[in-house]
Design a protein around this nucleic acid. Structure first.
Lengths: 113, 113
DNA sequence: ATAATATGCAACCAGGAGGTTGCACATTAC
DNA sequence: GTAATGTGCAACCTCCTGGTTGCATATTAT
């Protein structure tokens, strides 16, 4: 068996979730670690609470943020795992590039005959 | 003065560029380092060449890929700089989190009086 | 020169994303 | 109990995105 939240998501969905200015600001605010209610997140965002709610659900679908009930409030917090996945992906791209550059450099210093 | 391509882009635009499965596949293919023509990139993508062209322009607008003419072909290659920026952003988020966790841990081990 | 190849440009279209409004419901405060 | 607060749900609207088609243009091959 496997953890339900860790089911495979295409990395593009992850980047798409981060690919909105409003959502990225939410992520940054949540990155401080303290869970925030929808009300708190909506204040300061120049749009309706419902719009913010939608964005939060997008983040949840991407596995980036998760909610938890606390009385009549819903507190949202980040889930680092998917963000770590995104980093790994970018690392992979950079690494392939590095490997290729290393090969090129090697071939220049010690050309194949 | 500063390099023209390094003008500030909102990081969300960057993630948005990566937030499409087709574009991400293009990025992965280009990550090998070898520049590819539009024709080459379009073969294997089950859509029209024009659709691929559009995706390439999105990547170019985000500063992720850049074209260069070679006769009648247009060769596309990755530009790592923006990808590095994306990594830095994710590092920042993770780091804030780490800092907060460290503080929490410290406060538990050595509680403020 | 002519044909084949690789790309550019523009119009067009369907669907989804981001946002709003209005109202219902649950929880806490007084 | 009643009011205030925080949220959930659904309908609706607009605009952008991803995709197509059709044709024009530039370069290379024969």
């Amino acid at each position: 068996m496997k953890a339900p939240e860790s089911r495979v998501r295409p990395p593009s969905a992850l980047f798409a979730a981060l690919g909105d200015a409003t959502r990225l600001r939410i992520v940054v605010r949540l990155a401080r670690g303290e869970p925030l209610s929808i009300k708190q997140l909506a204040s300061g965002a120049r749009m309706t609470r419902q719009a913010v709610t939608k964005h939060l659900h997008v983040l949840a679908a991407a596995g980036v943020a998760t909610p938890s009930r606390q009385g009549r409030e819903q507190l949202w917090a980040l889930d680092r795992r998917q963000l770590a996945q995104a980093r790994l992906f970018l690392d992979g791209v950079a690494q392939q590039w590095d490997v290729r550059l290393a090969r090129l450099k090697a071939s220049l210093e010690d050309p194949p005959r």
